[in-house]
Nucleic acid binder design. Structure first.
Length: 289
DNA sequence: CCCCCTTTGAAGCCG
DNA sequence: CGGCTTCAAAGGGGG
């Protein structure tokens, strides 16, 4: 079943231009299967994709429901004590962030996002903080009991390790800020699902990957800019946080598999553009700004 | 229950 | 410094 959907997704992908330059993962592509897709018999996805590709990619108009869910309509509605609740510093109102906060209804280029520390999609506070029953969940913090973390402990077999586990559970995990592509995925996922009637994320992500490559530099630049602000916001929210905090918490993938899908010099330095997206007005790293 | 899959990009790790 | 690895999201599939 999974393969079938991937295959059908692949059929859709065949209507898309291959990513320019690196980033191709030949072995990750399922074998070409001919015939109509059971998931998208009408070829709506393909048509939609072609339509999209033939048009100036523009107006990423809609937030995904999920993103919208996190969106804060007005920055001033952010509770002043949220940082206290979470033991973090309130973000500074730097000129950069001031501009950022002003993006509530508009735009980093038409993008309706508000990626604020309140709305930050990677900030998910699992439950209210004691003493703040009405605490608004903060989207970057999750209880470390997520699937990537520890097993729920068993009271009947409470060992030292489990006690430790319990401790860990109570300690929220601050997630990585989303990169440009992740932001793009979040926004476009629902649209692709609607068009293609696919639901499996692996297949959807393949389509989104192709669409990403089909975007114009300007279009991608919006997301790079958003991502840059996300990172900056994250840095200000969690000054001491490092990605290493979450390093090694997930089970490792098989090395072979991973190398198949990640090899190939497509790395991108902080604040720079990879490949095709390398050109638009440079968004200098915040350390430079 | 929880990992796998799949994508790109950022960042950590290691030789 | 360069190459490799991990983790961000998502949700169906499968062990």
């Amino acid at each position: 079943m999974y393969k079938e959907t991937v295959y059908s997704a692949f059929n859709l992908l065949m209507h898309y231009p291959a990513p320019s330059g690196t980033g191709q993962h030949p072995q990750s592509q399922p074998p070409l299967v001919s015939g109509p897709s059971s998931q998208c018999p009408s070829g709506a996805c393909c048509l939609a994709d072609q339509h999209k590709a033939s048009q100036p990619p523009h107006s990423v108009p809609q937030l995904s429901p999920l993103y919208e869910h996190f969106s804060n309509p007005h920055p001033t509605q952010v509770p002043a004590d949220i940082s206290q609740r979470q033991g973090v510093h309130r973000p500074l109102q730097t000129p950069e962030l001031s501009g950022f906060y002003s993006l509530t209804s508009g735009s980093v280029g038409q993008l309706p996002h508000t990626v604020s520390w309140f709305t930050h999609p990677s900030l998910v506070l699992g439950s209210g903080v004691p003493g703040h029953p009405a605490a608004i969940p903060h989207p970057a913090i999750v209880p470390s009991s997520g699937k990537q973390d520890l097993q729920p402990y068993d009271r009947s077999l409470k060992t030292q390790a489990e006690a430790k586990a319990e401790k860990e559970v109570k300690k929220p995990t601050i997630k990585k800020p989303l990169n440009a592509f992740m932001l793009y995925m979040k926004e476009m996922r629902a649209k692709v699902i609607a068009e293609c009637t696919l639901k499996e994320s692996a297949a959807i992500n393949q389509i989104l990957g192709r669409r990403w490559h089909a975007l114009s530099r300007e279009e991608q630049a919006k997301y790079y800019e958003l991502a840059r602000k996300e990172r900056q916001l994250h840095m200000q929210l969690y000054p001491g946080w490092s990605a290493r905090d979450n390093y090694g918490k997930k089970k490792r993938r098989s090395r072979e598999k991973h190398q198949e899908s990640t090899s190939g010099g497509k790395r991108n330095a902080f604040g720079t553009y990879p490949e095709k997206a390398a050109a638009p007005a440079p968004f200098l790293p915040m350390t430079v700004l």
